[in-house]
Design a protein around this nucleic acid. Sequence first.
RNA 1: GUCGGCGUAGCUCAGACGGUUAGAGCACUCGGCUCAUAAUCGAGUGGUCGUCGGUUCGAAUCCGACCGCCGACACCA
Length: 503
Amino acid sequence: MSEPFYVTTPIYYVNDVPHIGHAYTTITADALARWHRLLGDDVFFLTGTDEHGLKIQRSAEANGVSPLEQADVTSARFREVWNSLDISNDDFIRTTEPRHIASVQAFMQAIFDNGFIRKGTYAGQYCVACEAYYTDDDLVEGNCPIHGRPVEWLEEDNWFFELSRFEKPLLDWYEAHPDCVHPVGKRNEALGIIRQGLADVSVSRTSISWGVPVPWDDGHVFYVWYDALINYATAIGYGADPDRFARYWPAVHHLLGKDILRFHCVYWPAMCMAAGLEPPAHLGVHGFLLVGGEKMSKTRLNQIFPADLVTDFGVDGFRYHFLRDNPFGPDGDFSYEAMVTRYNTDLANNFGNLLSRVATVVGRRCDGIGPAPDPASPLGAVAADSLRDAAAAWAGLSPSNALEATWRLIAAANAHLETNEPWKMDPGPAVDAVMGDALEVLRIVAILATPAMPATCAHVWERIGLTGTPAEQRLPDAAAWGGYPGGLPVRTGDPLFPRISTK
RNA sequence: GUCGGCGUAGCUCAGACGGUUAGAGCACUCGGCUCAUAAUCGAGUGGUCGUCGGUUCGAAUCCGACCGCCGACACCA
């Protein structure tokens, strides 16, 4: 029985347009999913959209449509972007789907039945844009500190989740699971939040109607967060398919941005405990993609959208850049110039050019028929190192290191060609061995880089005469030295990644 | 303010339980090659490892102070 591997992105709020920040998380999740498929794992990769809440309700009113119609439009936009970026999600969940509404009600009912929800009153200054209450201290000149807009006084009967009762259980859980949050700095932040004391939180609203109804109290809907987090349970059959749920839970990998650490690393584990479940096993927290050192935001007008870059770099160039250039964890600064440099260096000069030169020499010295590699080639050891290091890096949520390890093999192959100069040799066994080695490197790289660049790798696979696709290969066996059989037609063709002129 | 983190080559970063001449990629310089997308290969230039002080035979690494940057401390998608 293969290992289950469940990976999620946050579900994206449909009030926003998909930008490269969303794409960064989603591409990382996609690459992880693809890597684990190569390992033969039973992968389930989930993304989706979060569609409830006051912002959506108001936005719909302003546009003269129903909230669901409003959500349909923006949710579709996310789907289209992921489609265009070759995202291989197995499911796309929308919080407005009946399966999710049923799941939220079952999940929250379980918490209620377990005695962790009580009635209370909440009153305060409320910012519609934030969907959040503020204290007087928070306000800036009477306005919302984030949006600078006037707040409204709201007072309502709420149901409260008794988060305060979970301080100790959460600390115990963190103690028992030292590796649950990556990187460790983020784990410490979560611990800090817990140690500072947790107050009960209101989980329902009467002031709005666009949400999941509270099953035990008509007129209340759940606050959008307590609806949203449960999507991770819904998608694997919570309350509907116990066997399937048990297969994928709690061995989940949640990927998330640091802005929502509190919800994922404190509230969500507590909610799981309250509902009688194990908390999620892995939480991967990453930083922001900055632009010119500043956070992307609508108001700064510095948002960058995937389509802006895919035109210049291609889908795989786009995917590669965000996986390779930003270590998973810290903030990363995006710049177009840096993206061009990396594209030209890693993709055009190193990888693409290797295929070009190999195809040409095989055409001239081997009649276009790719020979088999030398079983004793020095590149064999390099390939083994690359596989080992890449595997370790993927396991440690570090795509940039995984790709760096893979590119070391490409560099070794280019150097191997220089050392042997096959273009000076007459056709024969010596040329065959060198070119077979180079083709074998291309074959292995095509497999190892498939999580980052699936379409390009499939194309390389085909250009060197192999049948099937690299995505069908199974590691680690497929990356063992000597897998290229020889005797296959090798095609010359257009450059894999045309250089981008910097002038 | 409280807590935490960071400050290493022009740029992006690795290294740090103390120990030989501090590393990589990019950029730059020189040389080789001409199969290849003016690509590639090799060599080299470049750092008082934020500042000051302490511990030590020995500190980028441990301790303290300071300077600078950042984050968390909000019912923040």
